[in-house]
Every structure is written in C-alpha cells, then in structure tokens.
Design a protein around this nucleic acid. Structure first.
Length: 133
DNA sequence: GTTCTAGAAC
DNA sequence: GTTCTAGAAC
C-alpha cells in the first residue's frame, strides 16, 4: 500500500471520524491548510473525480450535506468556508475539501498549496457538473 | 500527499 | 547568504 492509499486507511479509523452517515464520513485533514480543513469521503470505492458520472449526483449531494453539517458541528460560519474538489488530486478515494478561507496554517508551506485552493485547480462544489461525464 | 535536498535563482 | 524549484523516495 503506497501513500496514495493513506486516506482510505485513515477514514476507516473510528477515532478519526468527526461525523458520518450511511454513505460517507468526515475526517480532519492530516495537514490542514487553514484553521478549519475537513475532508468528506464516500464509503463507496470511488477512486477520484475522474470516475464520476451523473449517476453519482445523489451521492455528491450527500457529501455536500455532510460538509454543511461538519461546519455546523464546529460552530463556525458556513460563509467563511469554501467547498470543492481538487482538479488534480494526489490521494485516492474521492474527497470533498471543506476549508476555511483564512488559509492560516503551519502546513500551508508553498505556492502549490495555496494554488490548489485559490486557482482553477480548485473546483467548487457548485461547479461539479463540469466534472461529470 | 510530505520530506529532503542539490542546484538554480535571487 | 537566503529563497525558490524540481525531482527522488526501494
């Protein structure tokens, strides 16, 4: 198992779960790029955005619901967050980023980190249709 | 994805 | 001298 599978391993550990549903889980990003940075991952074995099609729309809505729920659980403002996918994901298992817009974190170390959330490398949830075949 | 580091660029 | 970049990691 390579580092690319680390997310799948982590999402299966109960101690990492913040909230979950029958279809997906929410964990904290191990290297948060902002004060708040969470990942929503489906239990279904969907490797990445490149496997998505229209049949996954209900699941994507479920992921977004969990994104809203984790922000509520943390007691912070939804307006202070951006939610979306990376256009060039590195880690396997589809994951929706839920990140606060401050981008203040010791783990935000280089230009690539910042660009991945603040350029076209970040695909907002509301632009998800562009990912669907 | 991160860490480490040699060589380039400043 | 310090920062930036790109590539390897068995």
């Amino acid at each position: 198992m390579s580092w690319q599978n680390a997310l799948v391993k982590e999402m299966l550990k109960p101690e990492n779960l913040i909230i979950s549903s029958e279809l997906a889980v929410v964990i904290a990003d191990k290297f948060p790029k902002a004060v708040h940075h969470y990942l929503v991952l489906p239990l279904a074995d969907i490797p990445s955005i490149f496997q998505l099609n229209r049949s996954h729309l209900p699941l994507l809505e479920e992921l977004h619901l969990l994104a809203r729920n984790v922000v509520e659980v943390k007691g912070v403002r939804w307006e202070d967050f951006q939610v979306g996918f990376h256009a060039e994901p590195s880690m396997l298992r589809l994951h929706l980023h839920v990140i606060s817009k401050d981008f203040v974190s010791p783990s935000l170390k280089n230009k690539k980190h910042w660009n991945s959330f603040n350029t076209d490398l970040f695909v907002p949830y509301n632009s998800k249709n562009s990912l669907l075949i």
